[in-house]
Nucleic acid binder design. Structure first.
Length: 396
RNA sequence: GGAGGGGUGGGUGAGUGGUUAAAACCACCAGACUGUAAAUCUGGCGCUCUGACGGGCUUCGCAGGUUCGAAUCCUGCCCCCUCCA
């Protein structure tokens, strides 16, 4: 199902959770959806045939990284990003705004834009809202993002406000630049709400950004330093202020528990490096929580990591074999782990969609939360908090 | 038989009188990773007590010795390697 132009249809709701679909010139995708991340025009270690077979309908790439290498005109001359990397479905590109956060000392922000120093060859580059949109026009994704400034969400409120106000001014410029371009008929443009973990700023940002008629609205600046509780309360707050007839995209979020909790708040789209990055380092998702496959306890498990998993790795290999691949430093290990984790996430999204469509989302979420334990570290933290709370309650 | 070199914690291998429970790397054990500067990073890794800070004990082939103090110096023994016969 393709369309000349971007569109979003809301098909069903269950509480705040939404079941819908986006349509683009390169096909449709069912929401809530998860986009595997192909920063450098590749989901690390996988072919796009594999990515599609895992159940992905849309992928994300990054205009900043493609700008540095191979260059946006190289991509355009190759026939656009879809042809260049061999993914015929919908693509979303991030503008490079996140690199304002992630590139540390290699970047400097001012009111006109962001000065980057290439991590590849040290060369200097200046991104403005206009140039970021222009780059994304030439790359040719179906959905492009406003150039924003992402900051450490738990940082000083003044800095968070500055970044938010800059993001607002840039959003105006991005919208105007895009609206004037012939690309506006083929590419959708999403605005991004910022404001850190400060409710007043999120309120202000939601109002400002939704006043501009973007094709969709993103929540940026989360999962970058704030607590889980703050992340959820900001997501709830912003979702409440977003128009119901446009897709809502929570940028950079993708742990299983965050996906389930955010869908519950009304988010439609996600992307995240977590499933693939963590996979390359030997962490795998299971219905009971995240585990480290290199742990000694898997050395003699001659059965799949868990029996119910339908992924290629679990259907063909034992946990002991996966562990062996990681211990031996074999590249098949990260590959199979990436397949496993992406399949886990994409199946989870399909399950969430079905649960919403069948009006049993709350039950699904309750079951998930009862079984899934995020990480050892988080478990330890919550145990510690419980311990402290208990001691306090006993009047210590 | 002669000449020379060497034996250090699971491995490779620094260290030649105190600041050394002993560098570094590997292996091993565990943790982290959320719009990817990441197949990366962090912690642990003799035994033992402690929640932790910290403490106790035993370590550098073996046995003795010198010294306030030894992996480091001396003596004897055992073992390994290279070259020559």
């Amino acid at each position: 199902m393709t369309a000349d132009k971007f569109g979003f249809q809301l098909l069903a709701t269950d509480g705040a959770a939404r079941r819908g679909q986006i349509t683009t010139p390169h096909g449709a995708a069912q929401t809530p959806l998860f986009m595997p991340v192909a920063t450098q025009a590749t989901v690390k270690g996988l072919t796009f045939d594999e990515v599609r077979d895992l159940g992905a309908e849309t992928v994300l790439s990054n205009a900043y990284h493609l700008y540095l290498r191979p260059g946006v005109d190289r991509v355009r001359n190759a026939g656009g990003l879809h042809r260049f990397m061999g993914w015929p479905g919908p693509i979303l590109t991030d503008s490079g705004g996140y690199q304002a956060f992630s590139m540390g000392a290699l970047r400097r922000v001012d009111n006109d834009g962001i000065a980057f120093q290439s991590h590849i060859d040290g060369s200097r580059h200046f991104f403005t809202p206009e140039s970021a949109i222009g780059n994304q026009h030439r790359i040719g994704a179906d959905i492009i993002m406003c150039f924003d400034q992402c900051v450490f969400s738990a940082g000083a409120p003044d800095g968070v406000r500055d970044a938010m106000e800059r993001t607002h001014r840039w959003a105006d410029v991005c919208y105007e630049t895009h609206a004037r371009s012939p690309n506006a008929s083929r590419q959708a443009l999403f605005g991004i709400v910022q404001g850190g973990a400060v409710p007043e700023l999120r309120e202000e940002s939601t109002r400002y950004i939704t006043a501009i008629p973007f094709d969709g609205y993103a929540i940026g600046g989360l999962a970058v330093g704030e607590t889980k509780a703050e992340m959820r309360s900001v997501t709830r707050q912003v979702c409440a202020g977003l128009p119901a007839d446009r897709p809502r995209y929570l940028m950079g979020v993708g742990s299983p528990e965050d996906l389930v909790n955010s869908v519950a708040l009304g988010v439609d789209m996600f992307d995240c490096v977590l499933p693939t990055r963590v996979a390359r380092n030997g962490a795998l998702f299971t219905p009971a929580g995240r585990i480290n496959i290199a742990n000694r306890r898997y050395a003699e498990q001659d059965t799949p990591l868990y029996d119910a998993c339908d992924c290629y790795a679990c259907r063909n290999y034992s946990a002991a074999y996966l562990r062996h691949l990681f211990k031996a430093g074999e590249m098949l290990g990260p590959r199979l782990a990436s397949i496993h984790n992406l399949r886990f996430i994409l199946r989870l999204m399909a399950d969430l969609r079905a649960a919403i469509a069948e009006q049993r989302f709350d039950a699904f979420r309750a079951d998930f939360r009862a079984a899934y334990r995020p990480t050892d570290e988080q478990r330890r933290q919550s145990q510690k908090h419980r311990w402290i709370a208990q001691r306090g309650a006993e009047g210590g």
